[in-house]
Design a protein around this nucleic acid. Sequence first.
DNA 1: GGGAACATGTAAGTCGTTACATGATTAG
DNA 2: CTAATCATGTAACGACTTACATGTTCCC
Lengths: 202, 202
Amino acid sequence: MRERNTGHVILGILAVGGDLSGYEIRQWVAQAIGFFWSESFGQIYPELQRLTKARLIKALPGEGKGREIKRYRIAAAGRAELERWLARAPRPERPRNELLLKIFFGPVAGAPGVRAFVDEAAKVQSARRQSIAAAEDLVIREDRAADTLVYSLITVLSGQFVTAAREAWARASLDLLDAHEAGGNKAVLRAYAKAKKVRGLS
Amino acid sequence: MRERNTGHVILGILAVGGDLSGYEIRQWVAQAIGFFWSESFGQIYPELQRLTKARLIKALPGEGKGREIKRYRIAAAGRAELERWLARAPRPERPRNELLLKIFFGPVAGAPGVRAFVDEAAKVQSARRQSIAAAEDLVIREDRAADTLVYSLITVLSGQFVTAAREAWARASLDLLDAHEAGGNKAVLRAYAKAKKVRGLS
DNA sequence: GGGAACATGTAAGTCGTTACATGATTAG
DNA sequence: CTAATCATGTAACGACTTACATGTTCCC
């Protein structure tokens, strides 16, 4: 098992969330860690079969009444594998930001497109802030007395800091675009210096 | 041509950077946009061949002296394709943050590992700040009079805001871990509220 | 002479998305 | 009854990484 993030996420969720089905795992991911992780069904279901074959999880017998939901439980070997994975340092992320890429090539396409992208990015961040706030509620409500609280709050805090930074960036970028139209590069440099200063940088 | 980010990055760089070889494209990516984008040789070389076959770029004839360097020039069709791509909105990014994932599952593995990851993350961000500062220098020196300045500065600003946020997050997270050890969940909640307040959130 | 950086490529394998396919249950 | 949501899966494809393979040129 080399990296297999999806597999390890499943193991982790079964470890902290109890017995769950593929569908429930997906929902769990979306609600609790959706602001920093995503999984699709097309990956979860095959991976559940793979983990079962590898004896890291086991399928629970159905109850024979009504709709059958296949739930899985983590096995001892699965917990051991999860711990090995958690002990390894996370691999450095390779940055891939399509928005910044399209902005960077802005001069090829012209300014109006760039402005629209930045506007849209601001909206996305504000929606994201809602979902992080929801995760915060969930954590404080359900983990108030649990030993998972610190770790959950640390992830929530990351979402909040980064989202706030991106929102501030979107606003500042619109200022730079305005400055460019009104006063050319000199005005841009002034607006840039001001944006950094306001944010406490430089 | 569906999405093919790598292909479009190559087109974009040839459009704004002139005639370049595969190796030079890679360097260009690392220096100018490395803090938000990455490409590997294993993708660039095959993609150059693909783009050539599709007549979006053309290989320039060698000069017949010394080492042969294969440089490429963007064709009119390539420029048109680039513009079509730039006109489409960037697809929403799907978050995948391995660091936060391992922190989230912290209770399974224990606190020391989490602390080490956060420490390491702080170091990475500070290295990243260096590379962004280098990109800022490059932009202000070379684009001072060009119509690419605004767009380059907007990308640099994003790097600076987000990196500063992540550094602040790492510091605050260490505070939360300290609070957890010293005073349990109540102290964690206090530290969390304080971190948000200091950052101007909540 | 040797090591670092330059330079171009191929092959294998992993990872992940998207679209497709199917059907049950519940709320209006 | 019908639309939304629940629920489980498969197939095809695309994207990307990593390791391998090979040779050159420059600087010490």
